[in-house]
């Protein structure tokens, strides 16, 4: 029983990680209508940036804020330079650009920082009130950060004019433009925000999995499984999906199929969701008028 609780706790802690990346995927989907392949790699690059600043001795929360800001700018810049000129061309070319971005981010990190794994500082480990027998203090902290982030995004999309404008821009760019929304700027904002959410995810992930250029590849798959399971257009769904995926992965990994097969859990979940309930547990069924 103790063992089971422990495994559950481990599952919950990686759940926070998957949830935050799933959230970033949902974010970019809601604000641009695309699924950004390079999301994980962008997050990884942000994390390396943060590592460099921390390594130079900067205080954690200052680094945290600066990284988020810089990621925002980088995301908005990518949107402006690469994505907007495409003008929503064929999906295949979009995916190609995302893939290109994926490879460039990955190799920049490899080139500049090398392929060694390195530890990443957690701001929560030293906090006394977070110590307990089940969850690592960092996991609890990361969970809290995810929750706050999720609530903030929900409030932003649901209750602010900008959030509404962003949703409108994705839903119907032409009409949005006609009512005076700067659609291009909304897309830029969406990319910037997604990059920031990704950066937060990266900084929360890195203390657990250690920092290296390929750390996000598998997490991206779990994040995608989570987003799909929860419903790709629903931030709450993404978070709940993240926890379900993580707990399942952990329990199955430990008790049923063995650790080496964890990736397959994600694959089966993705395919299973698509076959049985393509809109996800909490997603909206998309009806297209012909």
């Amino acid at each position: 029983m103790q063992e089971l609780l422990h495994q559950l706790a481990t599952g919950v802690s990686s759940g926070g990680i998957y949830a935050s990346l799933a959230l970033a995927l949902v974010m970019i989907y809601r604000s641009t209508g695309h699924v950004n392949f390079a999301q994980g790699e962008m997050a990884m690059l942000s994390t390396f940036l943060a590592w460099t600043m921390l390594d130079a001795g900067a205080p954690y929360w200052a680094v945290f804020a600066v990284t988020i800001g810089m990621s925002f700018l980088a995301g908005a810049l990518i949107e402006r330079l690469l994505i907007r000129p495409m003008g929503g061309k064929q999906e295949m070319l979009m995916v190609t650009v995302f893939l290109g971005l994926f490879m460039i981010c990955n190799s920049i990190a490899g080139w500049v920082w090398g392929y060694d794994t390195r530890p990443f500082e957690s701001p929560f480990d030293s906090l006394a009130f977070l110590q307990n027998p089940y969850e690592g203090p960092h996991d609890l902290g990361a969970m809290a950060v995810t929750m706050i982030l999720m609530a903030a995004l929900f409030l932003f999309f649901q209750f602010t004019r900008t959030g509404l404008a962003m949703r409108a821009s994705t839903e119907n760019p032409t009409s949005s433009r006609l009512v005076g929304i700067a659609v291009g700027r909304m897309f830029g904002l969406g990319w910037g925000m997604a990059a920031s959410v990704g950066a937060i995810a990266g900084m929360m992930v890195a203390p657990t999995v250690f920092l290296e250029p390929n750390m996000m590849a598998t997490i991206l798959v779990y994040g995608f499984a989570a987003a799909l399971l929860g419903g790709i257009d629903n931030p709450w769904g993404a978070v709940i999906g993240g926890y379900i995926v993580a707990i399942l992965e952990n329990l199955l990994g430990v008790y049923v199929i063995g650790n080496e097969m964890r990736m397959t859990v994600a694959l089966v979940l993705i395919i299973g969701t698509l076959v049985i309930k393509p809109e996800g547990l909490f997603g909206r069924r998309n009806v297209v008028r012909v």
């Binding site: 695309h34 699924v35 392949f37 999906e91 295949m92 979009m94 995916v95 995302f98 893939l99 590849a217 598998t218 991206l220 798959v221 995608f224 499984a225 799909l228 790709i232 080496e260 097969m261 964890r262 990736m263 397959t264 994600a266 694959l267 993705i270 395919i271 698509l274 076959v275 393509p278």
Partner: peptide
């Protein structure tokens, strides 16, 4: 069931799972 980038991601999962 998947179009465009989703199919790409699902196949990405397939590719990552294959060696395992």
């Amino acid at each position: 069931r998947l179009g465009g980038a989703y199919l790409a991601l699902a196949t990405f999962a397939l590719a990552v799972a294959t060696p395992q």
